[in-house]
Amino acid sequence: MTPFSHHEGLVAPMDRANVDTDLIIPKQFLKSIKRTGFGPNLFDDLRYLDEGQPGADCSGRPLNPDFPLNFPRYQGATILLARENFGCGSSREHAPWALADYGFRVIIAPSFADIFYNNCFKNGVLPLVLTAEQVDTLFASVYAHEGFTLEVDLRSQRVMTPAGDVFSFEVDAFRKQRMLEGLDDIGMTLKSADTIRRFEAQWRQRSPWLFGSLDTAAER
């Protein structure tokens, strides 16, 4: 995973509450067996005027002129400013894959859905919670100033505006450390392999019915 410690970038607005992962990446693109290439289909239903097909080239598709990510002023944005309960619904990790593939490194919102929040950290995308008032302020700035950027520092857990305003944010220590170092989760857990094996042996003794075989011949 790409490490994340400090990021400065252009901010784009996604000004609606309860943005679900179906909206972030519609189901037809979930048929891919790859982890990459979802960026052109990020927010597909909102971004284009026609219906997107998996595997199709998006470069010639008609863009929705009313969708902010299509505005010239937000091209190259790497920070997405959003509203409450961002990422609700399906657990599809294709949502953070699509956001990352598009180029977003930070999503700022007053709240996130649990599974999406967790999935972001696995993909070098920082989901950052500010208060509803702070988010309101940032929306006002994004609309008022073309080219509005933010600076995000994970180490000090601070967001800085060009005008010098500073907002602190919370993030749990484990996720922060992993993100800063870009660590492989599985490798870290496997450092505890002996502990896992000991636990498993005890648990099997206590609850042997959880360790039965599922291997029966297929029935037609």
Partner: peptide, 17 residues
């Protein structure tokens, strides 16, 4: 529910963080 990174994590370690 879990994401795909955690599917891989459970397959490899039988655990989740």
């Amino acid at each position: 529910g879990i994401g795909t990174s955690e599917v891989e994590h459970v397959l490899a370690t039988q655990c989740l963080v």
